[in-house]
Amino acid sequence: MNRPPNPTKEDFPWWLLVLVATGLCLFWQVATDEIYSQVLTTLAKGIWITIFVTVIGFSMACVLGLGLAVASQSRLQVLRQIARLYVEVVRGIPIIVLLLYVAFVVAPAVVYAWNWLTAPLGLGAWQTRDFPLIWRAIIALTIAYSAFLSEIFRAGLLSVEKGQIEAAMSLGLNRWQRFRLVVFPQAFRTILPPLGNDFVAMVKDSSLVSVLGVSDITQLGKVTAAGNFRYFETYNVVALIYLTMTITLSLLLRRLEHRLRSKSEG
Rank of each mutant, 00 (worst) to 15 (best):
D33S: 15
L64Y: 11
L117G: 06
T248M: 01
N2F: 15
L26W: 11
V18A: 02
V63W: 00
E166S: 12
G67M: 09
T246C: 11
A239V: 13
V18E: 04
G172Q: 03
D216T: 14
C62E: 03
L252P: 11
P5I: 05
A168R: 03
T234C: 02
L64W: 13
R180H: 06
T8M: 15
I138C: 07
I165V: 03
Q219C: 09
L100F: 13
P94F: 13
W14S: 11
T218V: 00
L100S: 08
I138T: 07
G156S: 05
L40T: 14
V223Q: 10
V70S: 06
S250A: 03
S170V: 01
Q219H: 12
L195P: 04
S59M: 15
A71S: 01
G65E: 02
L79R: 14
F232K: 15
T42L: 08
S159W: 04
Q164C: 00
Q81G: 08
V200S: 04
F188V: 12
V209R: 15
L181Q: 04
L17S: 04
K204W: 14
R75P: 05
V200R: 00
L141I: 15
V183E: 00
S37N: 02
L195W: 07
L149Y: 01
R129W: 14
G57H: 13
V160M: 06
W28Q: 01
A225D: 10
L43A: 03
G227F: 10
L85K: 14
S146I: 09
Q77N: 10
L43F: 09
P132N: 09
M202S: 05
V105H: 01
I49M: 07
A103F: 00
S170Q: 07
I35S: 06
T190Y: 08
P94K: 13
Q29D: 10
F179G: 01
F12D: 11
K9T: 14
A113E: 01
L16V: 09
W48A: 06
T41D: 14
F232W: 14
T142E: 10
L192A: 05
M60P: 03
V111T: 12
S250E: 05
V30K: 06
F148G: 05
I56H: 03
V214E: 00
A69F: 06
G124K: 15
A239D: 00
F131N: 04
A113I: 11
V110Q: 07
F179K: 08
V102M: 02
L79N: 09
I134T: 06
G57M: 09
G266E: 11
T22C: 13
Y86G: 08
L173I: 15
V39Y: 05
S262W: 11
Y145Q: 12
D33R: 15
S262Q: 12
E151P: 07
K9P: 12
